[in-house]
Design a protein around this nucleic acid. Structure first.
Length: 422
RNA sequence: GUGGGAGUAGCUCAACUGGUUAGAGCGUCGGGUUGUGGCCCCGGAGGCUGUGGGUUCAAGUCCCAUCUCUCACCCCA
């Protein structure tokens, strides 16, 4: 076998791209309604950006990044997520200095060197939203709403929005301390993984699927009992806003996120039918991140939708229209006569194709059929001699005669009329 | 990184306990219709059986390695 794509990297083939366009268009339409602006940042950044932003201790930074040395000795990394790069750009171009809240979206590929499985690729795509510069719980609610709305508008069903708060630097330490103590006492009942997590990132034990661990954690201290009044109020208000716009959610006090930078609100949208990777969108608040990356102390909230996972939930194939009209020109004279018509008809908004090769009528009709063209215009020697063309409707084979001198106009009328009927 | 399953025609899959020329459906190309698609009928092309080693008189089939796909763990969108 010759050269194949790199493991975990996938080609998006012509028959799939219409589905991608649909997803991207729906997302853009939703974002437009919320007044977001698009930002596009490079997929390559200095390694240090991700190390500081995502957290040195995370799996992503420790073992999943595509990192290499540039020719001048810089260490570079293919972005494993979008937020760090966007914040880098936000700081670098001093977008915070423009006043007001900065509300951004982006979409594009991310890279993580993990073992591929259902809903998990090494190059995958995300649709991201970041709202920078607001402490308001309304921003949190809007971010969740945005994610929910995109999925909703795509007609995806069976989704569940889970929300939690991770607290802030005021209330987190006390909880963390009590949780550590608790986990130490039940360490005998925890699985080896959880005992490992216990030291590195204690909150993650709540993610364990192991029944034994879940039983052991039943009485574990939860952040909700430790939240300071500000955090509790913040979460309460965010949830009130969600309720106000009729978005169903569940408060999952066990919900935790993997990235270090999250504070307060955190959420996931989970779907059934995705296998082990059930999260189709996720996000949360990251109030310390901008400062951590060298910018001013500006708060932020954001979310990411996993496009491939979303694609798995979108069952129906989206068919692309490939031709309204196929022009079957027979012979050199006919082809020369017809080429200017292509220009006019295409300018009129119609999808028009013709054969590159000088093939027989049968072959051209076959080609038109394969393109599912609605009509075929037949232009041969006879037609040119008589100055009357034939327009064949492919659905039933009915043919209509079209005078040569008003061909483009008549065809435009017929094609246009057909579209209106639909 | 760890574990299970799988790699045969463009696609979906056959080939009994190793045994002669690796088959079928779909697709594709051509013909039946020298200027009329789809449906039908007839015919053709297309394979170093993922790759490399090994066992054997003989390997698609057994063994080892490797790559890829897939599912799960881990982790995450």
């Amino acid at each position: 076998m010759s050269i194949k794509a790199v493991r975990g990297f996938k080609d998006i083939l012509p028959e799939e791209s219409a589905k991608w366009h649909l997803v991207e268009e729906v997302a853009r339409e939703v974002f437009r309604g919320f007044g977001l602006s698009e930002i596009r940042t490079p997929i390559l950044e200095k390694t240090e950006l991700f190390a500081r932003g995502i957290g040195e201790q995370t799996d992503i930074v420790e073992k999943e990044m595509y990192t290499f040395e540039d020719r001048n000795g810089d260490m570079l990394t293919l972005r494993p997520e979008a937020t760090a790069g966007i914040i880098r750009a936000y700081i670098e171009h001093k977008l915070h200095g423009r006043g007001g809240v900065c509300r951004l979206f982006t979409m594009g590929p991310m890279f993580r060197h993990e073992r591929p499985q259902k809903g998990r690729l090494r190059q995958f795509h995300q649709i991201n939203v970041e709202i920078l510069g607001s402490h308001s719980p309304l921003a949190d609610a809007e971010v969740m709403w945005l994610a929910w709305q995109v999925l909703q508008d795509l007609g995806i069903e069976g989704l569940r929005l889970e929300v939690n708060s991770l607290g802030c630097p005021q209330c987190r330490p006390a909880h963390r301390q009590d949780l550590l103590t608790f986990l130490e006492n039940v360490s005998g009942e925890l699985c080896p993984d959880c005992n490992r997590r216990r030291k590195r990132n204690p909150l993650r034990v709540f993610d364990c699927k192991n029944q034994g661990c879940r039983d052991a954690l039943r009485l574990a201290p939860l952040i909700k009992h430790y939240m300071c009044p500000d955090c509790a109020g913040h979460l309460g208000q965010a949830l009130d806003f969600l309720e106000g716009v009729g978005i169903p959610f569940v408060w999952n006090p066990y919900l935790v996120r993997g990235l270090d930078y999250y504070t307060r609100t955190t959420f996931e949208i989970v779907a059934s039918g995705l296998g082990a990777q059930s999260t189709v969108a996720a996000g949360g608040r990251y109030d310390g991140l901008v400062k951590e990356l060298g910018g001013p102390d500006v708060p932020g909230v954001g979310m990411a939708i996993g496009v491939e996972r979303l694609m798995l939930l979108l069952e129906d194939e989206v068919e692309q229209e490939l031709a309204d009209l196929f022009i079957a020109a027979l012979g050199r004279d006919a082809r020369e006569e017809v080429v200017p018509w292509l220009k006019e008809l295409r300018a009129g908004g119609f999808i028009v194709q013709m054969s590159y090769e000088d093939k027989g009528l049968k072959a051209q009709l076959k080609q038109a059929d394969r393109l599912r063209s609605r009509y075929v215009l037949i232009v041969g020697e006879d037609e040119l001699d008589e100055e009357v063309l034939k327009l064949r409707r492919m659905a039933d084979g009915a043919q209509e005669e079209i005078p040569l001198d008003e061909a483009v106009q008549r065809i435009s009328e017929i094609l246009g009329k057909e579209s209106e009927d639909e």
